[in-house]
């Protein structure tokens, strides 16, 4: 009984993660500028992978593979901000006129 509940919860999490990834890819198409698209990609990186891998941890049960899956989440969450930051820096440094694309505010 408890097994079935855990499996159902895991499957629900995986399906929700799929939905998150779908919205992320939809965001890649609906948003118009690179820096905006990056936010959509960040949603997939952070929320989508967390939902899918958390569901898979529930499906794995208490095993070594589940611990390794947790390690994947940790690695992705440590590296994805650095990757986003590098891409954003590249974009802002190489774009000819950033002020045409978005509002710049100094505080």
């Amino acid at each position: 009984m408890i097994d079935a509940v855990v499996t159902a919860a895991g499957l629900a999490l995986v399906l929700f993660g799929l939905f998150v990834f779908f919205s992320a890819v939809l965001g890649l198409y609906r948003l118009h500028y690179v820096l905006d698209r990056m936010h959509a990609a960040a949603v997939g990186d952070a929320l989508g992978i967390f939902c899918i891998l958390a569901g898979l941890i529930l499906l794995h049960g208490w095993s070594l593979a589940a611990a390794k899956t947790l390690l994947i989440i940790l690695f992705l969450w440590l590296t994805s901000p650095v990757a986003s930051h590098l891409i954003a820096e590249m974009e802002v440094e190489t774009v000819p006129d950033i002020r045409r694309e978005c509002e710049v505010e100094e505080r």
Binding site: F21, G48, L53, L56, I72, I87
Partner: peptide, 15 residues
């Protein structure tokens, strides 16, 4: 960015 998203998706598929 697209390549980055593809990599994330591949990791999900492998898992």
């Amino acid at each position: 960015i697209a390549v980055n998203v593809i990599n994330t998706l591949v990791v999900a598929i492998l898992a």
